[in-house]
Each structure stands twice: as structure tokens, then as C-alpha cells.
Design a protein around this nucleic acid. Structure first.
Lengths: 222, 222
DNA sequence: GCCTCCTTGTTGTTATAACAACATACTTGT
DNA sequence: ACAAGTATGTTGTTATAACAACAAGGAGGC
């Protein structure tokens, strides 16, 4: 197990590689390899362990009863998924985890995370703190998405998202991490309608757009 | 401090009242009383403690730059708020906490939650586990709301919400905890448009509605 | 260079949600 | 029982988003 890699992840941050090695036993660590299209877990199942992507990437998706698929998250190397379900034994998954490319996943049981363990207890606390930090940040990301999609108009959603990005970057000019389709999915709007609205906003002098680069102009209350 | 009350909350569940008493010092517990309309904390600020409502209730709301207010959560007695921010020191609040009625709030610092404390360490672990459980459940609630609002039509959102409620109750007939306006806010749609759509769905034989009581009829893929 | 694939912008049409305004229940307090 | 206030359903109009179809760029491979 590449404990040096693990020591750089959000979950094991601040724990020396040699201590991680001894913790992995505690956490019943097990790795498994998947191919593109494989399901790691499916909606309706229950899980007892969280997953960490070691290499490759995983999509967290929700399929409604009519088969419409929506991507809720994309988890890359070093990031964890299903941690909320692992913390709530017996809770049925609302989502499925699907592999985008050849991917190696490390499963970590949360059972032992909460009990005092015999090895490396100093770092046990660090692990739990990291876990809470990850959970808190993910929660904030979800809240943020809800806020950005609470406006009923496309323009309102775009301005909510863009003005947040501007404050994040501390600058009216910034790049966003989405292409048009991804941004439309994030804001739950139609891509072409969003493109259209962006053009109108440009004509109205609210914003300047060039692919991923945005500049918010004055008089937008920012 | 009413430690008996605290021992029944999600946060202190499983910890005897006498041990809670000694933990409160650890957590730098402090109470404060508020009147209707008071702000406990405001968007843009940073916090170092989480809040627990002892009596009364608090609304978690977000005001966009045009002054449109949206209620994200309502926190009642025994529940906590701002816990994600308390776990992420320095993170600026995206939301404000506003008091709905005369309310008493207990503030708990998270600083000491992660360090080994001298008193009642057996229950310290229990506290942290409870904290993670609360965080996980809140996260799942947020994910669920995102899923229920991801459909572009009002009917799709209603069916997503209602079919989830049906599976939750294990029965096609169930009551929902919202009135029409609250449900419309939750689904981010206009109330009257939603009422209208509910009527249409009733005419289409998909659902039977009577105030808070819903019955999902057959042939909806459930 | 050329071809193909993918992304983005544009337009017109259609469906549908928002909005406003009102009527009809229900609640609650007196 | 009555009045006042709130919640819900209904309707018609208007704004707007979804959708489909296409054109115009890039980007990458050969």
C-alpha cells in the first residue's frame, strides 16, 4: 500500500506514512480494482465501508424512476465517497457509484474509527478530525449548490454562481472549472438556454465571457 | 444546565447526564438568549462554535444579492446548527441564523472536541461519533433535496419527492410534513403552479391528494 | 493540411412555469 | 357563532425555459 500517497490525502493528512500503515489494519483496509462501467455500489444497497479512490475516477449518480441519470459528484484520486452512508449503518444508498475508467478503490470500515484503537492512537484523533473536516466541506458544497439553484431564472442562477466565484477568487475576473454542459448540469438548466442567457447578459453589460474565463462588470451589487 | 434534556439530543445521545456536565466545561459551553428577529450570526462572518437550540427555534436562511430570502433549514429544540462552519475555522458563513421566537442557544466550541480531554474520555468518543452521525444525516438531507429539485418540470419534482416519501413510509399512503407553501419552497417552484400541477396529476389518476395526506396510485413505476 | 469529434453559440417553436388576482375553504380567537 | 387571518385551489396572461436543429469554432489525430 502506498502510504506516502495516502498521507497526502485529505483523510490521512497530518499522519506519517508509517503510522498510516498500522491504522490500515484497524480500518480493515481492502483494495479492489474495477473497469469502466462497473458499479461499485448501487442505489438501494447498504454499505459498511467508505471508499477512497486510489487511481482513476468514480461518478456518483442518481437515476430517477424514469431512467433519467444525473451526476451528483465526480470523485478522483485521493478523495472519498459513500462516507455518509458508512457513518449511518443500514441506510440505503440513494445513489450509485460508477467507474469512469480503470480504477482502484480502497475500502475503509468506519466501525473501528470511533473506538479507541491499540495502535497509533495519537493519530486516531487526527483521522477523526480529518473525517469531520471532509464531511463539513462536502456539506457546504451541497448547500452552495442548493443556493445557486434556488433562483427561478437562469440569469439568477448564473449570477448567484458567478458572484460566488468572484468572491472566492477575490477578483472580478476568474476561470471556472466547468465547461458549458457541466455548468448547465450543476445549475440544473438547459445548456443552450444557458448559453443564450450568457449572451444576453453580455449584451446587457453585466459580464464578459470567453470560454471558461469570466469577468463580472460593475453595478451588480457585488 | 439541564443535562437530562441534553442527554436526549442527537449530539449527547448515549452520554449520562453527569458526564455531560463535566464535558460542558471542555466544550466551553455558554448560553445566550435571543428575541424574535435577532440574528445569531450573519452571512459573511466566521464562527468558532456551533449552536444548539435549547428552546424556541431558529431559521437558517440565505439572502441573495437582490434581497430574495430563502429558508434553508429550521432548527428546533435539541438540534444543532453552524456545525459545519465550526469544523472549518475561518470559513465565512453563506447563511444567517435568525431567531423565530424567544430562543435560548447553547454554544459549544469544537476546539476541544478533537483533542484528548482529561474528563470523561470514554464519552468523548461517543460525542464525536454522534457529531459524525449528525453531519452524515444532514448531508444526506441536502443530497435528497438536490435530487428532488433536479427535474426540470414541477410534476417530475413532485413525483420524485412523493415517491421517496412513499418508500420512506413503506406505504403508498402517507402524510407529508409540509404545507403547500413550504413544499413549494422545498422544491423551488411557485406555490400556485404546484397546486395546479397537483390537481392535474389527480385528474390523470397518478395521485390522490387531501391537504397533507397523499396516496400514490398504481402504474407510476414504484 | 485535412478530417473528425467535441464544444459552444444561435435561432425559432413549443411547452410550461411564474405571476397576479380572486374564490373558497379551513383555523383560530373571542 | 362570528370575524379575521391563513391556506389552498383555480383561472388567464405573460414571460421564459426547454427543446430541436443547425452553424461555427476549436482541439486532437493522422
Amino acid at each position: 500500500m502506498d502510504t506516502l500517497f495516502l498521507s497526502k490525502t485529505d483523510l490521512f493528512r497530518g499522519i506519517p506514512p508509517e503510522d498510516i500503515q498500522s491504522m490500515l489494519g484497524c480500518l480493515k483496509a481492502a483494495t479492489k480494482t474495477y473497469q469502466r462501467g462497473d458499479f461499485i455500489c448501487r442505489e438501494g444497497e447498504t454499505v459498511t465501508a467508505m471508499g477512497m479512490v486510489l487511481s482513476g475516477s468514480v461518478s456518483i449518480e442518481n437515476d430517477d424512476i424514469w431512467g433519467n441519470r444525473s451526476i451528483l459528484d465526480r470523485v478522483g484520486a485521493g478523495q472519498v465517497f459513500a462516507e455518509n452512508y458508512a457513518c449511518l449503518p443500514g441506510e440505503r444508498l440513494m445513489i450509485s457509484a460508477v467507474v469512469n475508467e480503470p480504477t482502484e478503490v480502497l475500502f475503509l470500515s468506519t466501525d473501528c474509527m470511533f473506538t479507541v484503537c491499540s495502535h497509533a492512537c495519537v493519530f486516531h484523533n487526527k483521522l477523526i478530525r480529518n473525517m469531520l473536516t471532509i464531511a463539513a466541506r462536502k456539506s457546504l458544497n451541497l448547500s452552495r449548490r442548493i443556493m445557486h439553484t434556488s433562483s427561478k431564472s437562469i440569469r439568477g442562477r448564473l449570477l448567484s454562481y458567478l458572484s460566488f466565484q468572484a468572491t472566492q477568487h477575490g477578483c472580478r475576473a476568474f476561470d471556472i472549472p466547468f465547461n458549458r454542459q457541466q455548468l448547465a448540469d450543476y445549475l440544473s438548466v438547459d445548456r443552450s438556454a444557458m448559453s443564450n442567457e450568457l449572451s444576453k447578459m453580455q449584451r446587457d453589460g453585466i459580464v464578459k465571457v470567453e470560454r471558461n474565463h469570466f469577468v463580472l462588470l460593475e453595478s451588480d451589487g457585488l
